[in-house]
Write a protein that binds this DNA or RNA. Structure first.
Lengths: 232, 232
DNA sequence: CGTGTTATTGAAGTGTATCAAATTGCGTGG
DNA sequence: CCACGCAATTTGATACACTTCAATAACACG
């Protein structure tokens, strides 16, 4: 919950940013990248730090350079939910900014990260001068909407084991070298750490995963896919 | 499941469309409205008809002129889910079009509707010539994303009664003169018709709602809000 | 005025949360 | 670098909210 940023500096330039080929700014002309360069603020965050908090108003976009960040929404009852997980090439804070709403979730650093903040006025200027960026974002948000609605359906007609299998596939596939606690898996799958544990033990019995301490290794990906009962 | 459209005609013009002030096209210049007018196709659909189906590819946008349309996703187990409900001023098919994906849900007419179809090329032209439209859509999709993620959290840490109370508030508030079956309420709230029934009976006992046959009248809105335990 | 759909109520079964307690593993500071 | 302390894991027992199945009643529609 420490919001302090332990290092602020101007990075060299966006043109050579290794995360750019993977994000919405991938094929911008140099002029646009210069615009970003002039206004961006490079920040470094350590694990556990929050980049922004639920309820506060967005002041710009966050472009993740390196590291991993969780988007967590905290329910009224104290339960947390991991809405999204973002890494190099991902963007944070776009939903609230474009909808002109307060943040619905907090961005918590999962692995030490370098993040560029692009102030709101610079984003506006970018969108005004390069409309193609807006369309890129439109596609990005639209895909995220599908993802959210998919999960919504899954919460309703999948059981805990199916959702946990799905969570394992998602987390391990996209963030292979990260460690995820039982609670984090539960917060993603919409269940409890105990149920995650029992399900993992069950999967281990069937040699689908291997549990070595708190590490989880997927042994039989196909079996896990079958367990997840994916609709798509 | 009848896809036949029982009437096709060109409407007078978008400028005088009574749904426009409520939608993303609200403050477009005349030139843009002319563009829409030249390309749009006005269709009429009857209750139960599908405007598009899960899995098929989008060929344009649908602008709802009048009527009510449900967006239904059918799960693998046969359960349906109502993802969104759209009426005059709403747009359909935008998510798939912008994400360049197949439809994730089917659009089923709930109340006889008049819908304008705007072919994909016309949408592209509109976005290219009037970038502000893209930003409008960006805000629209971003808000929808919040809605979906809100519901996602609700599915995880609310019980059936809370979700049903929420569903009643949503459906009755936005679509006051529509009738909703127990199954439709269940499909929205992520539960079963039986649980909806029992919860409604419970609410009726407490004089929160009145049940007259299959009509539902909300007697005590505040009590229902309390039952829903809204976070926002 | 039938006929199929929706509503309604009951009974039974179970998946999953909850609570609790012991154990393990990890990071931190001495 | 080791030991300590705390957080995460693990397992068990219990409870109950909800689904599921079933059967009757009410309604709406052609």
């Amino acid at each position: 919950m420490n919001m302090a940023v332990f290092s602020i500096k101007r990075s060299s330039d966006c043109r050579n940013c290794e995360s750019r080929p993977k994000n919405v700014f991938c094929d911008l002309p140099d002029e646009a990248l210069d615009l970003l360069d002039r206004h961006k603020i490079v920040n470094h965050y350590k694990r556990g730090q929050a980049i922004f908090h639920t309820g506060s108003l967005p002041s710009g976009l966050y472009c993740v350079n390196s590291g991993v960040i969780r988007l967590e929404a905290s329910g009224s009852t104290g339960n947390n939910h991991i809405l999204r997980v973002v890494q190099s090439g991902g963007i944070l804070g776009y939903r609230s900014l474009f909808a002109n709403e307060a943040y619905e979730a907090s961005a918590v650093v999962h692995e030490d990260s370098q993040v560029c903040q692009i102030p709101k006025p610079a984003v506006s200027e970018l969108l005004a001068k390069f409309p193609a960026v807006g369309l890129k974002f439109l596609a990005y948000v639209s895909k995220e909407l599908r993802h959210a609605e998919d999960r919504l359906c899954g919460m309703a007609d999948k059981n805990a084991a199916e959702r946990i299998a799905e969570a394992l596939l998602f987390l391990k596939q996209n963030f292979a070298d990260q460690t995820w606690t039982r609670k984090e898996i539960a917060d993603w799958a919409g269940t409890t750490p105990e149920t995650v544990m029992r399900t993992l033990a069950d999967f281990a019995d069937q040699d689908i995963v291997a549990l070595q301490g708190r590490r989880i290794e997927i042994l039989d990906r196909d079996a896990l896919v079958a367990k997840a009962n994916l609709s798509l």
